[in-house]
């Protein structure tokens, strides 16, 4: 556990140090208009949606699955929010509706994968493609004229602050702890890892591998739903076409940077959050550095590749051996 955690943390530290060199007041944190303000806070603040999705993704990847539809699920839960607010529901209930819709989406994926036995990448591709369309149809329920809304409650969850700290960090911490208890303080984590490691053997051992996979997709759907709530409340408008676009890719990357393997069998919740922070720190750093934003994606890709190579024992040994030869010559 310790040795594996070193590399993503090291990558995060290196990026932050480089940031400090590029812009000397990078670490400054001030209080502006009753809340903390600064680059570090900004990174945490912006990383929340990706980190939420990545946590759910970590569970699904633990079962040897994958969920490409998380962005679409976020779009659907966002569309549900705008629709139910327009319909006049109390805003607490609106939140329940949005999350319920996300859970139903997760259950749909779970049914395709665990029930019908469709390959996860194909099964979730269906909702990935159709989900944003569903979101746009939900917008039409109230005429499709103006999908924006005002909600003190929901916007408070997303963009508000409590005791100088952004509210969404509390929301995130709460959800993280909830998920951690669910995975590590019940036997669900063991069952997910056993299912991902060897579904046939888990079945013989008495674990209902299909039910476990189903549950994993529901959890992933719910986490994506929360990301949809945070993102939609932030812009207070339902925008199914572009909300959480490509978030599935960042989430999968976060899981992998955190040490998760697409071959399944292990869940690392804490490291997944670190993975999401690495990605967000990188994005923020590029913006701050003054480089044209066009470089953003390429640099991000290079750094991610570098972190992944660092994680591979074989690659590290190869690089070390090559360097050693250089030194001796």
């Amino acid at each position: 556990m310790q040795s594996r955690a070193v590399w993503p943390l090291l990558a995060l530290a290196v990026i932050l140090i480089v940031d400090g060199i590029i812009s000397p007041n990078f670490y400054d944190i001030r209080i502006v208009e009753g809340r903390l303000f600064g680059n570090l806070i900004d990174i945490l603040y912006r990383a929340v949606p990706t980190a939420l999705v990545a946590l759910g993704m970590a569970v699904v990847i633990g079962t040897k699955g994958i969920d490409l539809s998380v962005g679409s699920i976020a779009a659907i839960s966002g569309a549900i929010i705008a629709w139910r607010i327009q319909a006049g529901d109390p805003h607490g209930l609106v939140l329940v509706w949005a999350l319920a819709a996300a859970a139903v989406c997760g259950a749909w994926n779970g049914a395709l994968v665990a029930g019908l036995g469709i390959q996860p990448i194909i099964a979730t591709l269906i909702l990935m493609v159709s989900g944003r369309g569903i979101g746009m149809m939900v917008n039409l329920f109230y005429g499709g004229t103006d999908p924006s809304f005002q909600s003190a409650f929901l916007q408070g969850l997303s963009t508000g602050s409590v005791l100088y700290v952004p509210t969404r960090l509390f929301v995130f911490t709460g959800l993280f702890l909830l998920l951690w208890v669910l995975i590590r303080r019940t036997a669900l984590g063991l069952f997910v890892e056993a299912t991902g490691g060897n579904a046939a053997a888990s079945n013989i051992a008495g674990v209902n591998a299909r039910l476990i996979a189903f549950v994993a997709y529901v959890i992933c759907g719910l986490m994506a739903g929360w990301a949809g709530v945070i993102l939609t409340a932030d812009t207070h408008t339902s925008d199914p076409v572009s909300v959480a676009l490509y978030i599935e890719l960042d989430a999968i990357l976060a899981v992998v940077i955190g040490g998760g393997s697409l071959a399944g069998g292990r869940i690392y919740l804490g490291m997944t959050v670190i993975g999401a922070l690495v990605i967000q720190t990188l994005t923020t750093s590029i913006l701050i550095s003054g480089l044209p934003p066009e470089y953003n994606l390429i640099i991000k890709a290079l750094v991610v590749l570098f972190v992944l190579v660092l994680q591979s024992d074989k690659a590290r040994q190869g690089i070390a051996a090559a360097l050693w030869r250089r030194v001796r010559q």
Binding site: E193, A194, G197, N198, S202, G265
Partner: peptide
């Protein structure tokens, strides 16, 4: 194929 979850530890396999 059907007996063990190879990646999991001896302990985890025993208690499964």
């Amino acid at each position: 194929a059907e007996g063990l979850v190879g990646e999991l530890s001896v302990r985890e396999n025993i208690v499964l």
